[in-house]
Design a protein around this nucleic acid. Structure first.
Length: 930
DNA sequence: GACATCACG
DNA sequence: GACGTACGTGATGTCC
């Protein structure tokens, strides 16, 4: 039936409804697997009402549900900040997006979306067509942006409030008729969509002005006449901005649509399809009600077998590498992309030619959408035979790389499709280098880390073995080892498919297993606020890198080499024969064998132990150990720093790009590798000079900000030590204060040595102090050290209580927690023997170190937004320090902003009783900035 | 690949 | 009563 007079078109604003339903309705999850379905439920109930009303006098003859699609529209081209302040889609809503499309189709209602257009524009176009054809139109929505369409047979209906919105209601809201709504919106702006409007003018004033002057254009032309000076000035100065705002709020009523209104005719639902869907969603009431209405038997409710969902029961679906698909053309790839959209999630893995994300080439991509179902898309695999350049020719049967990425990019960047990785940071960095900014992501490695830190590592092999009872194909079996190892692009495509697709399959299975457990184990907040959002932050820092001056390092290396040669000759002379100075075994033999020095200890393997501490004792009497110490220091600086760092300078960027391991330390700290930039020397004068090689780029400076005494402050807070807390509030020297309390020395009589001892005790406390450890550190008799500790606990009884309570908690629960809820497991805490001591001290230290780690993570996660409009880039993190590269001249603007974020990073989740203070430094290089 | 050593917070 | 200990990391070289 064609659309015309007497027809009634219902246009349902699907996207807006889902968001509103999601926020308005209590969270509801599917019983069998915990899938969030609250918004889908609200949506289906609304559709049901429409089906029910189909019999009524006001029944629609035509109906459609319209959704937004894609995030980039013509409005973004007009104004790049359009909707820029929108929050990311809530985690629980994302999987519901594709389900609402499915629901629409199940109800046999036209489901409409068009890439690059907002639902509002499609609605506007359809409404105009309906109006012009002489029919009635009802827009099911309460979105004020649609109110401009009301009138001439078009009205709106708020389905959640059950309220009709006609011309009167629009006038009530905007103070003008529907035809002038866009003028008012252009002036008033909209903070939700980030439409600027005229600053200082809201809806009330805007309506007043429009009613006085008739329309926006007249108002702007005659703005000079306005009496209020501020208002007049705004309208004159912001004319461009206001006109732009009008363009942004004006809906496009003339879109090209590839269907006519007649295709939207109301159709009865197919009972099987509709009831099948509702049953699958486990909507019991609705299924029954609709079955009754349709006059058919409701389908049997799905069986919920409790065992199938027992938390620790891995699914038994076998792994069958032969069944994985090798995707070799666009049609096959499109099928997988469609699957990803349909489900709203997809596991992704990349294969590359190596491990350095900044340099390697992408070789292929694998995807998985359900357990056992995965594919591999080979892109640049080579044939076995080398060509003239030894690179090998491209193997047959692979998609063009650019084409494959072009097809995948919209899906990988689409907010409604969750991309699941094992170690997302690695793959995201690769994709970024190929022009794809992957979001949103989930990461099974981090999910495991949030749940299981302290129990085991979180690599794919461990996780697959532990949770899926399956040992994945080893990469070594494909690449070989050592010198004869090949790169992944040389691997036969069939073999590569089995390996790569399996990784995606495993990732997806792990995700399905871990997802509900986050909640069960009470670590959803940790994962969502401390792990997942850190991934893009770290990826950006790593890709930024830090500039390192090769010449400085090279000169230092040469100087070290010369000194070492001199020392080596001297040592051979002293020993009376040549030997390898770098061999602790040989040094030990000379010291304690040939020279027969006293006090030598042996390591557990029976060789003489020669650590620096032991050599220092001997060095007061003998030259030999003193020279060994000198040699070792230089050897360390040269091999680990001045030589190795040069190798790490990326030839393309001239910078060093470290890699942070987010799951590296059980406590929540980061670890840095390849190279480790968290242990660049600073304590010795000679070593510190290496920091001079870390420089700011031309026209910029390095800025370093670090938390002062953060762990001691956290200890004062968690142990509730009032005197310490007060000392921090007053900005006192905490070590001097401790010394004064302990040794009854007034502050003005404090000596550096007494203070040094108190400082060692303060640190010892954080580490789970022992008399032996303190004695060794301070080089005092053990009894004396124990005396210090007893005294300390006497003066600060709260600390002793904290330590005992923490150990007790660990023994009871098998884990300890940071203030932010991070759990660190302590499986050895109930062990007997020497293990127990280690576990106890680790348990005491973990909440303190871990809380500090959580605090700086929170600061880092907030940093990108805070410095968005400042010429500053965050480069490095060294546990309690952040290093930025800042444009010269902007330093004084940046430091207060960064400091503010760092000092208040604990709030509002945790309010510390002690202030956190941050010291800042700046300079042309890291030595100066620190 | 285990071990010893030493760089950092 | 003896044991054998400061907490958390990563990189390097020797030696088997």
């Amino acid at each position: 039936m064609s659309f015309g007079k007497g027809c009634h078109l219902h246009l349902i604003d699907g996207s807006a409804f889902i968001f509103r339903a999601f926020h308005a309705l209590p969270p509801l999850t599917r019983k069998s697997d915990g899938l969030p379905i609250g918004a889908v439920s609200g949506f289906c109930n609304m559709l049901y009402k429409i089906v029910e009303d189909n019999k009524g006098p006001d029944a629609p003859t035509h109906v459609a549900v319209i959704f937004d699609k894609g995030s980039h529209t013509f409005r973004n081209d007009l104004y790049d900040l359009y909707k820029a302040n929108r929050d990311a889609m809530p985690e629980d809503l994302r999987p519901q997006m594709p389900l609402t499309r499915e629901a629409t189709r199940a109800f046999n209602i036209a489901c409409i979306e068009q890439e690059g257009f907002e639902a509002d524009d499609i609605i506007a176009t359809l409404a105009r067509q309906g109006r012009e054809a002489g029919g009635r139109v009802t827009i099911i929505s309460s979105d004020k942006d649609l109110m401009q369409l009301v009138g001439g047979g078009v009205e709106m209906f708020d389905a959640m409030k059950n309220k009709r919105i006609g011309t009167e209601q629009v006038e009530e809201k905007f103070g003008v008729g529907p035809e002038r709504v866009i003028d008012v919106q252009a002036l008033a702006g909209d903070s939700v969509d980030n439409i600027p409007g005229a600053p200082g003018i809201g809806v009330k004033t805007a309506a007043l002005l429009i009613n006085e002057y008739g329309d926006l254009e007249t108002l702007l032309d005659r703005a000079e006449e306005i009496k209020q000076p501020k208002r007049r000035q705004t309208l004159l100065e912001k004319r461009d901005q206001i006109e732009l705002s009008k363009k942004l709020v004006t809906l496009d009523q003339n879109m090209d649509l590839d269907f006519g209104l007649e295709t939207l005719e109301v159709r009865d639902p197919e009972p099987d399809a509709l009831l099948g869907f509702l049953n699958e969603m486990e909507f019991r009431t609705l299924t029954k009600r609709i079955a009754d209405q349709l006059g058919v038997e409701p389908p049997a409710a799905p069986e919920i077998a409790p065992e199938a969902n027992a938390p620790d029961e891995p699914e038994d679906l076998p792994f069958e590498p032969e069944t994985y698909e090798c995707v070799r053309d666009a049609a096959a790839l499109q099928g997988w992309i469609d699957q990803a959209y349909k489900r709203g999630y997809v596991a992704v893995d990349t294969e590359t030619t190596g491990l350095d994300e900044m340099r390697v080439d992408l070789v292929g991509i694998s995807l998985s959408v359900e357990p056992g179902k995965a594919c591999y898309i080979p892109l640049i695999h080579k044939t076995g035979d080398d060509d003239l350049f030894g690179t090998g020719a491209l193997a047959e049967g692979q998609m063009d790389e650019a084409e494959a990425l072009r097809m995948l990019k919209p899906m990988l960047e689409d907010a409604s499709v969750l991309k699941i990785f094992q170690n997302a940071k690695y793959d995201c960095k690769i994709f970024t280098r190929y022009g794809v900014n992957v979001a949103p992501i989930d990461d099974t490695l981090l999910m495991s880390y949030a749940q299981n830190a302290g129990l085991h590592n979180h690599g794919m092999d461990t996780l697959s073995d532990t949770y899926l009872n399956h040992t994945p194909i080893s990469i070594k079996s494909l690449l070989g080892t050592g010198k004869s190892a090949i790169t992944f692009d040389k691997v036969d495509i069939d073999e590569a498919t089995k390996y790569a697709a399996e990784d995606a399959d495993i990732t997806l299975r792990l995700w399905q297993l871990f997802k509900p457990k986050l909640h069960q184990k009470r670590v959803t907040t940790v994962y969502e606020t401390l792990e997942r959002p850190l991934v893009p932050v770290l990826a950006k820092m790593e890709m930024s890198g830090i500039k390192v001056d090769r010449d400085t390092l090279s000169r230092m290396s040469n100087a070290f080499a010369q000194k070492m040669a001199g020392l080596e000759a001297e040592l051979h002379e002293l020993a009376g024969h040549p030997f390898n100075v770098q061999s602790p075994a040989q040094v030990g033999e000379i010291l304690f064998g040939e020279m027969a020095l006293e006090g030598g200890k042996k390591t557990k393997t029976g060789q003489w132990s020669t650590p620096a501490q032991a050599l220092e004792d001997l060095a007061t009497e003998h030259d030999f150990p003193a020279r060994v110490l000198d040699y070792r220091q230089l050897q360390k600086l040269k091999s680990t720093y001045t030589d190795a760092l040069q190798e790490h300078i990326n030839p393309d960027t001239g910078r060093v790009h470290t890699s942070y391991i987010q799951s590296g330390a059980n406590t929540g700290r980061l670890a840095s590798t390849d190279p480790n930039l968290q242990n660049i020397p600073v304590r010795s004068e000679e070593g510190r000079r290496i920091r001079e090689a870390f420089v700011a780029d031309t026209g910029k400076v390095l800025v370093s900000l670090d938390y002062s005494q953060i762990e001691l402050r956290i200890l004062a807070h968690v142990a509730g030590i009032d005197s310490l807390k007060q000392a921090f509030r007053d900005g006192h020297d905490i070590h001097a204060m401790t010394a004064s309390e302990m040794f009854d020395v007034p502050l003005d009589e404090m000596t550096p040595d007494i203070r040094r001892q108190a400082k060692a005790i303060n640190f010892g406390v954080i580490y789970g102090i022992s008399g032996f450890g303190l004695a060794r550190n301070l080089r005092i008799p053990r009894a004396e050290a124990q005396g210090f500790i007893d005294r300390y606990f006497e003066r600060f009884p709260g600390i002793k209580d904290y330590m005992d309570d923490t150990v007790k908690f660990a023994k009871e629960h098998g884990h300890v927690e940071t203030l932010f809820g991070r759990k660190i497991h302590t499986p050895e805490i109930n062990a007997k023997g020497p293990h127990a001591g280690f576990a106890k001290r680790a348990a005491i230290n973990a909440p303190i170190q871990g809380t500090a780690a959580d605090v700086i993570r929170r600061a880092m996660i907030r940093m990108p937004d805070a410095i968005e409009n400042l010429p500053a880039t965050m480069l490095l993190q060294v546990h309690d320090e952040l290093i930025f590269e800042v444009e010269e001249g902007a330093v004084d603007d940046c430091i207060p902003v960064i400091r503010d974020i760092m000092e208040n990073a604990a709030d509002p989740a945790v309010h510390l009783d002690v202030p956190l203070t941050v010291d800042a430094g700046q300079g042309a290089n890291w030595a100066e900035a620190h």
